Computed example of a mutant assay.
Amino acid sequence: MKTYDIEVQRLKSIRHDKGLVELYVDAAVLPRPLRDDQAGSSCVRLPVEHARSLLILLKQQLAELDKLQPRSRRSGRA
């Protein structure tokens, strides 16, 4: 598996489309060298203010999705 360092430089928008949440960002994507002490996974880095914005936007999108669910499905049970 290829691993990458992904640095989010700017959050542009977020939207829900057909069961997927799409994030539009400006990001720098670089191959990540594999180290012996790390698992083979990619790393996403973003400034704290972007993380806070992302959290707010995700909460808004999830709230909108919950409104679309019938009341019997909103209890959190799958």
Rank of each mutant, 00 (worst) to 15 (best):
L46E: 08
Q60G: 11
A27K: 10
P31W: 03
L23G: 07
S42I: 00
R71M: 12
I14V: 12
G76L: 03
V48M: 05
K59G: 12
P70W: 11
E64K: 04
E22W: 14
R73P: 00
Q60A: 14
V25D: 03
Q69D: 00
D5M: 07
R32K: 07
A51G: 14
L20N: 02
D17H: 12
D17W: 13
A39F: 08
H16S: 08
L11D: 01
Q69I: 03
R71Y: 11
D5G: 07
K67M: 02
L58S: 13
L34E: 13
H50S: 04
Q9W: 00
Q61K: 10
V21F: 10
L23S: 07
R35Y: 05
R35V: 14
D66S: 12
S53N: 09
E49N: 06
K67Y: 00
A63I: 06
D5S: 14
L11H: 06
E64T: 09
G76Q: 05
L46N: 02
H16P: 00
C43S: 01
Y4F: 14
T3G: 01
I14W: 09
L58N: 07
R35S: 10
D17C: 13
R15M: 04
A28Q: 11
L30D: 12
I56L: 03
M1I: 04
D36M: 12
K2Y: 13
V21M: 03
V29D: 03
A63G: 10
A27Q: 08
V8R: 00
I6F: 06
E7P: 04
R71V: 15
D37K: 06
Q61H: 10
